[in-house]
Write a protein that binds this DNA or RNA. Structure first.
Lengths: 351, 351
DNA sequence: CTGAAAGCGCTTACAG
DNA sequence: CTGAAAGCGCTTACAG
């Protein structure tokens, strides 16, 4: 069927040199006469030589040491609990290749802790890093250090344009907001009010919430049929009580509200309000398949969740680092994960 | 970090035998004294020995020869055009392992051709087969031959319970019908009529259309709010004109129709009718991201498409065959692909 | 600047 | 029944 692969030995014979010399040319480790080098390179090109990866790995026993730096998954931030699974799956799938992964986590509310942990990462002298750049300025400092050390790094869950990242795998935030807009537009009647909720201490600092909001609004601007009022609510304190109170106030002020878009993963804080008041006809849509969110989705309290496949993000991140290190393969710089539309009927496929 | 892997050499030293003997025990090729065997097996267990895959592949140079047998993609059946891409991706990803894939296609309308092609497959003496069992009785015959030859096979796009398949990767048809039901229920008003369309010459023979219909109806039986009439239409002739005429007749008989569920991938035959008549408020939902379907989705003529990731089906099928052959890994027998809900706003992520 | 040799962990064919 | 040796394709250290 396929032609037998040419080996270094063949190249050597064709060029009239020894395999050692071929290897020196291949790996550009010098000490080869110009004329010899040219001859070998010519043969290499003609034969389209590619190395036998099996033999390379077997011989070199070089093991890639990767490090991930992601927020710790906590009760309040359980979005992060899926990320390690994707990394584990990537390592397992690449099992024949010697590779280690050190998972370092930081407190998502604590810049100082992040900073400290970046030092731990550097101390491990990794061959590649997977990173969620939650804190922008601290991340920039860290990335420039990585660059100086020539360590490639991949972003998940967000990216910082000004850095020299190898790849980003994650959501198209603007687009996902548009999808949310379209879904609400489809299920509501023509002119009902829409409540847009952000839960964040420091809203202006949370890029993905803002970008999703913009996408959401742009849908109604461009093509929405529902011309109802948009009501904006920012809740700085994420305690269950304060969320309930804040939502309650809005319904008093605007009894015409028929749908709620929450820009983050905390629809589980809003659902109890709707449940208690028996407001079954209000359409709630939010993000991420946290256990509590799924519970309210299945119970019919919230209508849609939008998923962003956290596990797939880290899986692909590790793969890309590996392929870059092992084969020198340059990945697509930005790979958007599909925006998944999830209802009570298809949610089981995604968890 | 991780302990150095034990090698055959280590096992040999610990057991007080030579590496040749260890190998004989490992591969159960006999010619080992019982006592020796027991000793070696004990050490093997203690050390949790696993072979170095790299060295195995390098040495044996054994190449797996896989064959796929899928319908040919034609203008009328372009659903099948994505399947080869998934296989190509799998082969590429497994590139370091020597493997060949022969892609054989058959005429989806011709049992005899299928039968003939099964012979071609067998003649290739494959190590594993990927198969879409479109024709049930012919597939059963073929599968029993594969079984007799000890050739593992994986189904995509449907499976036949009575055969000894290694794995199935594909849709949960009943569940996907339920999802369609839920979507229509969400976007229509309480009591409007729903048209359920099947396009098939021999409807009773087409399992997936029937199963999807059942799932669809079960949604309304269990939890649907829309209590409108369900109107069933089967169109045996799939020419654009006859579809248009058939749909037109139904609307005359039932002017209350506000939504259409087509159980297969030919929503592109129904959309032109709605477009011509300017029936923008009728909700059309169908299957599969064929170019023409996507066109009507983006134009706002159809509301939802349900996707079943054909590329991922074949990708995973090839992977499972490989892992079974290379590592003897027994896969999950039935792996359902997620039911994707696709609108004009998120469709670009899926094509 | 170049070649010959050893060795990565495994499998296979052969000798005893 | 068992062991010693060759070799898969590559890399590395050494001799010249």
């Amino acid at each position: 069927m396929s032609l037998k692969k040419t080996r270094i030995k063949d190249i050597a014979a064709l060029s009239g040199v020894s395999i050692g010399t071929v290897d020196r040319v291949l790996h550009k480790r010098g000490e080869v006469a110009d004329k010899t080098r040219q001859k070998v390179e010519e043969i290499l090109k003609e034969t389209k030589y590619t190395p036998n990866v099996m033999a390379q790995v077997l011989k070199s026993k070089k093991s890639f040491n990767l490090v991930s730096l992601l927020p710790e998954s906590t009760k309040d931030y359980s979005y992060w609990e899926k990320h390690p699974l994707g990394m584990a799956r990537a390592i397992e799938e690449l099992e024949p290749f010697p590779m280690t992964l050190n998972e370092i986590t930081f407190d998502i509310l604590n810049e100082k802790d992040f900073q400290k942990k970046t030092e731990s990462v550097l101390n491990l002298k990794p061959d590649g890093v997977l990173l969620a750049p939650i804190f922008k300025s601290e991340s920039i400092v860290f990335c420039s250090k990585l660059k100086k050390e020539n360590i490639p790094f991949v972003f998940v869950d967000g990216y910082i344009e000004e850095t020299s990242f190898l790849a980003y795998i994650g959501e198209d935030m603007f687009r996902s907001g548009k999808v949310a807009g379209q879904l609400i537009d489809m299920v509501t009647t023509k002119n009902s009010d829409i409540l847009v909720v952000n839960i964040a201490k420091n809203l202006q600092n949370v890029l993905h919430l803002n970008t999703r909001t913009q996408g959401f609004l742009s849908y109604f601007k461009d093509s929405g049929k529902n011309k109802g009022k948009k009501i904006y609510l920012n809740i700085p304190d994420s305690s269950p009580e304060s969320v309930k109170i804040a939502i309650g106030k809005e319904f008093q002020k605007h009894p015409g509200i028929r749908s709620i878009f929450i820009t983050g993963s905390r629809s589980y804080l809003i659902a109890p309000f709707l449940e208690e008041k028996g407001m079954n006809s209000v359409h709630l849509i939010g993000y991420d398949l946290l256990d509590m969110n799924v519970k309210y989705l299945k119970a019919g309290i919230s209508r849609f969740l939008i998923g962003q496949r956290p596990e797939e993000q880290t899986f692909k991140g590790i793969r890309k680092l590996f392929e870059y290190l092992a084969y020198n393969k340059i990945p697509e710089k930005i790979e958007y994960i599909p925006v998944d539309i999830i209802t009570s009927e298809n949610v089981d496929f995604f968890i």
